[in-house]
Nucleic acid binder design. Sequence first.
DNA 1: CAGTATCCGATGGGATACTG
DNA 2: CAGTATCCCATCGGATACTG
Lengths: 119, 119
Amino acid sequence: MQKNPVQCQFVAALDSIVGKWKPMILYHLLQGEPLRFNELRRLLPDITQRMLTLHLRELEEEELVKRVIYPQIPPKVEYSITEYGKSLSPILESLHQWGAAHVERKRLKEAKNEQTETD
Amino acid sequence: MQKNPVQCQFVAALDSIVGKWKPMILYHLLQGEPLRFNELRRLLPDITQRMLTLHLRELEEEELVKRVIYPQIPPKVEYSITEYGKSLSPILESLHQWGAAHVERKRLKEAKNEQTETD
DNA sequence: CAGTATCCGATGGGATACTG
DNA sequence: CAGTATCCCATCGGATACTG
């Protein structure tokens, strides 16, 4: 942890949501329905089993995600967003929106560049 | 860039603000005053010259930060937030607030654990 | 003052194989 | 089904030295 409290707060917040697939995992779980391990895999086609496990464990550690094991064979494990995890919703929503605008902005700029090149 | 548009948007947004010192650089520049290279260094005591340069270049590349060179000796370079960069302000503010709460939450929990240990 | 250049170690994440 | 275990590589960021 850093000494600077402000940096510390940014780091704490970003640590919770940074990770290649974390925002998407949270995004899916924020839809409300609990999801099984393989359901998440299907929703995130390119994630590896390893990374899904690691990210879920980290989110669980931060109490953003709850893991429920049904002791049966074959095993069934369900992941759901916690109440605390829901508090991240506005942030993810903002990131999502700003990201969409940022992508569009870049796209427009590239289009303009190609335009100028062919002038 | 990912195929999935939603992931893509998260990635685009996070790419802009993720980097060990980027939120703090933006935070300081969002105070309004343009800052010189070494002023930023003083505000971020632990940053290396190299990382400050790299991060500033990336922020400039995304048009979140503007770099103005005064051609004089000794050199003077001022960095300031752009109008577009200001659009990140609500996100950083949210992250900051949530991060502060998250840190406090962890602190309380650790305090409680120590309490239980000495019971 | 405001940078570059080089080197280097730590971490993040992918690929693949195996398991209760 | 829901994971572990290994191995490996790429990127990130730190340390240090040099410069117009």
